[in-house]
Amino acid sequence: MNSDISIVALSLQIALFATAVTLPLGMLVAWLLVRKQFRGKFVLDVVVSLPLALPPVVVGYALLWMVGTNGWIGQASESVFGSTLAFTWIAAALAAAIVSLPLVVRSFGAALAGVDPRLEIAARGLGAGSVRTFLTITLPLAYRGVIAGVLLGFVRALSEFGATIVVAGNIPGRTQTVPSAIFTRISAGDTDAAWRLALVSVVLGVIALAIHNWLLKRSPLSGVGRSNEGRR
């Protein structure tokens, strides 16, 4: 039972760290994709979305290569910390972040696209720079969708298994998350213990999705008022 709690705690820690990465990164990418026209937009969209289309194991394998002694992340962390990130909880969090990023970007993108761009143009004309416009107009009008996206990314990070086990392993007390613990217990035939953690996953998932759906259902259409006649 004690070990269950520490496993859940480590999973939450990893998912929180992953969310701390995907929130700003996902917002930036979503804003670029929704509001900006630039060269390489198509490529950015594909690269960010790729984890949706790949087996998580492949993502994990690619990440393992990057954080290993030959990869640029690995070399950077070796020079700073004296060791690579492979088989650490940070590697697990990075894996969870990469796998959940496409969902986060999609949710944020839908939220930002729901904000009438003419309101942003109006704010700029009234003297607000682009950052202030984003913070005072775009974000307040999109916040429900943004919180929904954060929740979705968080539960996706919590349930990440395939990429995590490749890049971080399944080390009890260090990198063993809820999904990898369930996997270990099923393999060992310890079904009661497996069911306990499975139940925790179900409860967390149901709560997060319920809030997610409630937020999106209540999301007001952030339009510019009711009269749309004559608009071209």
């Binding site: 143009i121 009008l141 008022g225």
Partner: peptide, 27 residues
């Protein structure tokens, strides 16, 4: 645009829907 000192009034107002009238005017 924010440095041009130009006020614009759009067809349907383009008021900020999350701000009340006072905050819109004061924006």
């Amino acid at each position: 645009p924010e440095k041009r000192c130009i006020g614009t009034v759009y067809q349907d107002g383009a008021l900020f829907p999350h701000l009340d009238v006072r905050r819109n005017i004061e924006f």
